[in-house]
Structures are given as C-alpha cells and as structure tokens.
C-alpha cells in the first residue's frame, strides 16, 4: 500500500512550528522597530518654500529663538514669525536675492509664506509651550539641536512615552531660566544637575504630571 503520507510529512509539524516562530519573531521585531514614532516621524524634513536656515540665523548670527518665535513664553503654541520680522534685516541684507522673493512678496502683500509644519501632536493631546519654557525646559529637549540644522527636521519622537519619560523625572532636565534658548548649555556634572533640579522643583513647585487629564483634556 502506497503511503498516503510520505515520509517527509513526519517533519511537517516541526517545519510549521519553526516557520511560525520565524515569521512571528520577524513580524514582532518589525512592528517593534517600525511602528513607533521613533521611525514614523523622526527624521521628517519637509522641503520649505524658502531655504531658511536655522544654522545661519540661530547658530552663526546667534539670534535668540525668541527674536522670531516671540510667543513661545506666553502662549501654548510657538508662532512662526511674520515676513516683516525677516524684513527687519533683509531690507538691507541680501536685498535682491532671489531666494528671498517669497519673503518680500509676503511682507508687501500680507499673504503668509506657506511654511510646512514639522512638529504636530495629535489633536487629542493638549500641549503647552509656555508651561515648559517658564519651568526651565529648553527647546533642545523636544526639538533637538535646531541651531545646527540647515533645514528643520523632526529630531525627537514626541510620543506619549517620550513626554512621560521627562514628566516622571523632570529634575534631570530643568535648567536655569536664562539658558532655555542656549541649546548648547550643558550642566557641569550629573550631580550638579540633580542638585539644581531638586532645588528648582521645590522652588518652582514643578510637579511630576502623569495623570491622563494633564495631557488629554
């Protein structure tokens, strides 16, 4: 009688188990690695309508972030400057440069420059710049080394895990209020940072906010 199940089928269950394990591991690893904001957002660097460079303006010229992003200490969102703010300098600097055509037109007509927004939390998240900036959290914690970027890119994941990591231990990140926009500032040592952080937390009454309604209200 010929075999209905040839001999190799004895190995079939083993093969299926190995195969499922392999595929399962690969899919898990793939989701783990690729389905988080660390991959889906970080590195996003859109082409902007004007080749504006933070490395030139904030890095080399040393302009303070608040020269342009004036609302960042007062309001929940950080404004992109109006074209007239650029024209304060560019009415003399690179007066006829073709790269700045759009800026000149915008300043004359009042029609905004269509900058592409890079950082954007979902609409169900409540975020507030002034609360962070006035409690000694620097731009660099959430935006990376903007003063070295020729074009802004998404440097930090801005995921819930990322926000909570700091909210659990704000004393590791708070810094003196006059160093908020100094992106290259480093604490003298880890111990000095912790010591300052603990003191600042007490003085400014910084809470470690982890309840859901802080960010989802």
């Amino acid at each position: 009688m010929s075999a209905i199940f040839p001999k190799w089928t004895n190995r079939l269950p083993m093969m299926i188990i190995v195969g499922v394990l392999l595929v399962g591991t690969a899919v898990t690893a793939g989701v783990w690695y690729y389905f988080t904001p660390k991959y889906t957002r970080v590195g996003y660097q859109p082409i902007q309508p004007v080749p504006f460079s933070h490395a030139t303006h904030a890095g080399q010229l040393g302009l303070d972030c608040r020269y342009c992003h004036t609302g960042v200490e007062k309001s929940w969102f950080s404004n992109i400057p109006a074209a007239s703010t650029c024209m304060n300098c560019h009415n003399q600097v690179l007066k006829d440069d073709p790269r700045l055509t759009l800026v000149r037109e915008s300043a004359a007509s009042g029609k905004p420059i269509p900058w592409v927004q890079v950082h954007k939390v979902p609409d169900f998240v409540y975020f507030n710049h002034s609360v962070h900036v006035n409690r000694g959290i620097s731009c660099v914690e959430c935006h990376g080394p903007v003063d070295q970027m020729e074009e802004v890119y998404h440097a930090k994941p801005l995921s819930m895990a990322f926000c909570l990591e700091c909210h659990r231990h704000p004393e590791t990140k708070v810094r003196p209020l006059d160093k908020i926009t100094d992106l290259n500032w480093r604490p003298e040592s880890e111990a000095a940072q912790l010591e300052f952080g603990r003191r600042a937390r007490e003085e400014w009454r910084v809470e470690a906010l982890q309840n859901c309604s802080a960010c989802h209200r």
Partner: peptide, 25 residues
C-alpha cells in the same frame, strides 16, 4: 531610524492608527 544611523526623509510622517489624530478644529 534616524537615531540608529538612518537619514532624514522628505516623506510626511506615517500615522499607524490615525483614529482621532486630526479633528475638525
């Protein structure tokens, strides 16, 4: 990933679960 030695990208972020990310406001 970028922090793993990957480069920057011009492609807009991917929304894995776009449920209520963008609302009419």
């Amino acid at each position: 990933r970028l922090d793993d030695g990957g480069g920057t990208t011009r492609k807009p972020p991917i929304y894995v679960f776009p449920d209520m990310d963008r609302q009419l406001k």
